[in-house]
Amino acid sequence: MSTPAPAALSAAAGAGGAGSRPVPARPAKSKRSGRGRTRAEIAILLGPALIVFVGFVMAPMAVAAYSGFYSWNGYGPLTNYVGFDNYKEVLSDPKFFTALKNNLFILVMSLVLQGPLAIVIALLLNRKMRGRSTLRVLLFVPYVISEAIVGVGWRLILGTGKEGGALNALLRAVGLDGLQHYWLNKGTAVWVLLLICTWKYLGYAIILFLAGMQGIPEELSEAAQVDGASFWRVQWHITLPLLGPTLRIWAFLSIIGSLQLFDLVYVVWGKAAPSVDVSTMASYMVLNGRNTLRYGFGNAAAVVMFLVSLVIALAYQRFVLRRDTEGATTDGN
């Protein structure tokens, strides 16, 4: 996806990350007591996070996943074992694949739209100039508003009828009557979803990139600028390659987020999501699982969703992230 950072540069920068590997053994005094001590350190540092995570996240998820093998209405013990029936039903339902298709559309378009946009904005906001703090805060506001309210607000803006909603009224007011549209309906719905997602999550990408840029030494770009390179040239050749690890992590989170997308779809379209072709795997799961009290089926759909995400994540890790998490994806040593 992105070009590898030149080894020399990243070693010089350190922050590039590409070149720096985990420190091997401690240089001194770590021959005998070292191993036990290292284990103790790992336990102390990793233990608390692991316990909280396994207890509150993984264990409940495992239980939920297990119920995917049952016909279960959400009440009482699991008694009616149905094997892979729920899974077969999910995988033979064209509606599920329509949903998956929408997830993939959002996934690809989010990367293509949000990534470059957020990089450019982050570069601008990273410059030392008056007012940048205010700009940062204002661009971050959409991310702070909860999905539920974002949904209410955008529904009022987009309206339901051809003449409804603030946007259509605005178009009328400026004489663009011809552009009035049923924005939430089939055809435009998935684009509207993309728009809302971009609007809402751009701030997230921006602050992530800004944080990543702080690891890039100013000397490099300053030196290059002194040598007469333009601002954008410097960014392209120096900042961007060094931002690689952050970019790849953002893309990873964005991909997973796109595959799990639910709140915005459900708040804006609710049960109409399938009929205007904007359903996602998660909305499929809720509409056909929880809402029909077929919890076992819904949980099987969640497992399918998990597997889809896992396959995509593994592929991503294999081909893109490997560099950054070297040793972390496969048991190093």
């Binding site: 316990i51 396994v54 207890g55 264990a59 495992a62 239980v63 297990y66 009482g76 013990p77 699991l78």
Partner: peptide
Amino acid sequence: AIGLAAFGLAAGLTACGDS
């Protein structure tokens, strides 16, 4: 965390059978 390790997992795993 210790409490969690003691109860959390067991509770989680028996959740469904707990009618």
